[in-house]
Amino acid sequence: MNTLQKWLGPVLFCTCLGGGLTLGWSATTDLNKKRSSEVAVLQNALYDQECGSCHFAYQPGWLPARSWDKIMTGLKDHFGENATLAAEPQRQLTDWLRVHAADHAQGGKIQKMVRSIPAQATPIRITEIPYFQKEHRKLPLRTWKENPQVRSLSHCATCHPQAKEGSFDEHAVRIPNFGPWKD
């Protein structure tokens, strides 16, 4: 009995530690796996507030740093609207976007996206990127441009229900007035 009591504590401790490590490892692996095929989701309340109030808060991983620079220095005419920011949020958001931009993506859609951009090009619309256009080329105009509930491919979350969570899996696509999309 004494021996059992003596070893029960350490045995239980090791079992819990082992279980915890295994769970932690698998969670990390799942996260990495998800991030290799999707776009990283980063929490930034300032970005959600300043940019996400008017449009879908496009994850910084969708564009290379040079594109974010061009967008952030041209906020006075931001696709026809004045979206200028105060100096401090302007600096903070530009830094954050540059650090998390697509340039250093390892594998997955984001790497394909960034590689499809010609070296001399600085797109400021994600919809201008060749890989993005290739992925959406089979969609007839009636499903988006002529669809009053979609109108533009820049409205990611209209058809990708998990866009905010960084998931753009085509099996999850639900087009308003059309339903799932089968490629």
């Binding site: 996400g52 109030s53 008017c54 449009h55 879908f56 026809g80 609207e81 209209t158």
Partner: peptide, 9 residues
Amino acid sequence: QHPKTGKRI
């Protein structure tokens, strides 16, 4: 609703 982006206000 934002007229261009469709974002809910």
